[in-house]
Amino acid sequence: MSQGGSSERIGFLRAAIARIEAQNPAGALALSVARGRVCEIVPATPGDGAAACGFALSLAIAAAARPGLILWVVEDFAFHETGAPYGPGLHHHGLPMERFVLVRVAGPQQALWALEEALKSRACAAAVGELRDGARHFDLTATRRLTLAARAGRSEAILLHGKPAPALSTASETRFEVSSLPGPGLASAGGRRPIPTHPAWGVRVLKMRAAEGQHGRPDMERRREMIWGRDAPQLKGPSGDPLSLGADRRQKLA
């Protein structure tokens, strides 16, 4: 068999797998957590910033399986406004802290520069950039540049929007809208209020370029529920067995 024949076949299989995986957010995740891609995360409401940040963290941890730094670019203002990434919390979720670098920048221009520099350097497994006014500064040109940089350096870019951005036109491959979701609380004794446990999010795939032009487009409208277990820092998505969380789940656990 010739070289070309087998690579063609592999390409066909990969496309088929992508088509199947694209049906659910977990598949979209598998596609987004790949080298040389740009992934955007938008909070659903202004109060969902922490949930979006947690989701970004989960992607960064997944990317940390590859060698390289995990770079997190934060604007100055975040330190008192939305809170800065907190080491023990990141460590608690399983981020390899010895490879974590926090970059504090004065504004969006510096943030974009630092991200581009980091992505194309090949030193990073993933670079997370959060901007308060992401809708304005992560524009088509900026994201296009970041995409090229991520491709050149074969690292992953995770762009975190600080506030909801309903209509966006960017060059990113995937975009997720994340909202907070009541987690599977543990009931406590004596009929008191339950104990919060694992983080849970409602995740909607808003955009997925990888699956475009193929038969199975992702279900863009439906919000999927996801739970992030503590012991295994990976997303347990609804692949095959959709996890249903929320109120009924809480009672079941109780």
Partner: peptide, 20 residues
């Protein structure tokens, strides 16, 4: 190199590692 470059542009104290 990346850390040096970021530090050169943004200031050395702006590029941080977290230590417990």
């Amino acid at each position: 190199d990346l850390i040096d470059r970021l530090g050169a542009r943004l200031g050395l104290r702006q590029v941080m590692r977290l230590v417990p």
